[in-house]
């Protein structure tokens, strides 16, 4: 369960990087790869173990003012990413 003050960080098992050939951000792990869609890539770029979910949402809101309320998208992705163990959930 995440809250606005949850501070997610990348599981050390994974490496996050831009893949030119895939034209998307990816998560790399032992012998595997997860391709991220555009919004997942935007969220992941902000995850640094310091920003809270609320700060990540606000930053994206400022970057995409035409995007409407993004909190559901952010919450949904971060919840999934924690379930999949891509992210640690550090309160």
């Amino acid at each position: 369960m995440i809250t606005p003050t949850t501070t997610p960080s990348l599981n050390t098992m994974f490496r996050f990087q831009w893949e030119k050939a895939q034209n998307c951000f990816v998560l790399l792990f032992p012998e595997g790869m997860v391709k991220l869609n555009g919004s997942a890539g935007e969220i992941m770029q902000l995850i640094d173990g310091e920003k809270t979910v609320q700060q990540i949402t606000e930053t994206l809101q400022n970057k995409f003012p035409e995007g409407g309320d993004l909190s559901n998208d952010v919450n949904e992705f971060i919840t999934t990413a924690i379930e999949k163990k891509w992210l640690y959930n550090d309160h």
């Binding site: 998307c24 792990f29 012998e31 595997g32 790869m33 997860v34 391709k35 869609n37």
Partner: peptide, 25 residues
């Protein structure tokens, strides 16, 4: 098996159709 397993571990959050280029990298 180690090699076959690699393909199984690929996931994607992307929903669009696979690349149309004839041979991917």
């Amino acid at each position: 098996k180690q090699v076959n397993n690699l393909a199984n571990k690929q996931e994607s959050t992307q929903k669009e159709a696979p690349q149309k280029t004839p041979v991917g990298p």
